[in-house]
Amino acid sequence: MNTRTSFLIAACALVLAACGDKSPDTASVATEPAAAADAAPATETAPAPAPQATDTSASAAATPGSDKPAAVVTDCATEIEGNDLMQFNVGSIAVPASCTEFKITLKHVGKLAAAVMGHNVVIAEASDVQAVNTDGLAAGPDAGYVKPGDARIVAHTELIGGGQATFVSFPVSKIQGDGYEFFCSFPGHAALMKGTITVGK
């Protein structure tokens, strides 16, 4: 019975594909019953949404182990989002080599206040992130959890709460080589809210 159902589903999918229907809904309908019949086909067909990630020019710079897409960069600027689940919506930012200044806009799409679930974007070398966070914690909420005058920080936005937006612009020349990250310095957030930032060659 399971084999017959699988063949029927596969036949329906082929007919729809022949008619030109390439919508993601067809793929999800085809993979859900297959998962019940046999785990292996579901694993093989599940990566169908992958082309969306490869459509972004900076997808190769994604954080190792991150399934988040690369930020979309237009005119030496990008926009990223933070939410109440302590997540950024992107895992990497690739700055074009032709840019001399770069702008990052942060939108907090959640509802919680900055005192409870505040977010910012801080850029520093990956090797300095822990120390920058430790010093930011000591600086406290009035400083936006960023130590004033910290030379290890390339740039940072202010700390914002739900429904707010902020931005920072900085000289691209401040990013020297690979090994830089963007992260949120609100206490405990950097463990989840981080990604890589690179400059094209």
Rank of each mutant, 00 (worst) to 15 (best):
A37G: 04
A37M: 06
A37R: 02
D38V: 12
D38M: 11
A39C: 07
A39Q: 07
A40F: 13
A40V: 14
P41V: 11
A42E: 05
T43P: 02
E44K: 03
E44V: 05
E44I: 10
T45F: 09
T45I: 05
T45C: 04
T45S: 07
A46C: 01
A48I: 11
P49N: 11
A50P: 12
A50N: 13
Q52Y: 14
Q52I: 11
Q52W: 06
T54H: 07
D55Q: 10
T56G: 09
T56D: 14
A58I: 00
A58T: 06
A58P: 08
S59T: 09
A60M: 09
A61S: 10
A61T: 03
A62W: 10
P64G: 11
G65P: 00
S66T: 08
S66H: 12
D67I: 15
D67P: 12
K68W: 02
K68E: 09
V72W: 03
V73L: 07
V73T: 12
V73W: 05
V73Q: 00
T74N: 15
T74K: 14
D75I: 06
D75K: 13
C76H: 11
C76T: 08
A77D: 02
E79H: 08
I80V: 12
I80K: 05
E81C: 04
E81S: 10
E81A: 09
G82R: 04
G82H: 07
N83G: 09
N83F: 11
D84Y: 01
L85C: 14
L85F: 15
F88Q: 03
F88C: 07
N89W: 15
N89R: 04
V90C: 00
S92G: 03
I93F: 04
I93P: 08
A94M: 08
V95I: 04
V95L: 01
P96Y: 12
S98C: 14
C99I: 07
C99Q: 11
C99Y: 11
K103P: 07
K103W: 12
T105M: 09
H108N: 10
V109F: 07
V109I: 09
G110T: 01
L112P: 03
A113I: 08
A113D: 13
A115G: 15
V116M: 04
V116G: 02
V116K: 03
G118L: 05
G118I: 06
H119Y: 00
N120A: 07
N120R: 04
N120W: 00
V122H: 08
A124F: 02
A124Q: 02
A124R: 01
E125K: 15
E125H: 15
D128M: 04
V129H: 04
Q130L: 15
Q130M: 15
Q130S: 15
A131Q: 13
A131K: 13
V132W: 05
V132Y: 05
V132G: 01
V132Q: 03
D135Y: 07
D135E: 14
G136F: 06
G136T: 02
G136R: 01
G136E: 07
A138N: 10
A138E: 15
A138S: 13
A139S: 00
P141M: 11
D142V: 03
A143N: 09
Y145R: 04
V146C: 00
V146K: 01
V146T: 01
K147T: 10
K147V: 11
K147I: 14
K147C: 13
G149A: 15
G149V: 15
G149Y: 14
D150L: 02
D150Q: 03
A151V: 02
A151P: 00
A151D: 05
R152I: 12
R152V: 14
R152L: 11
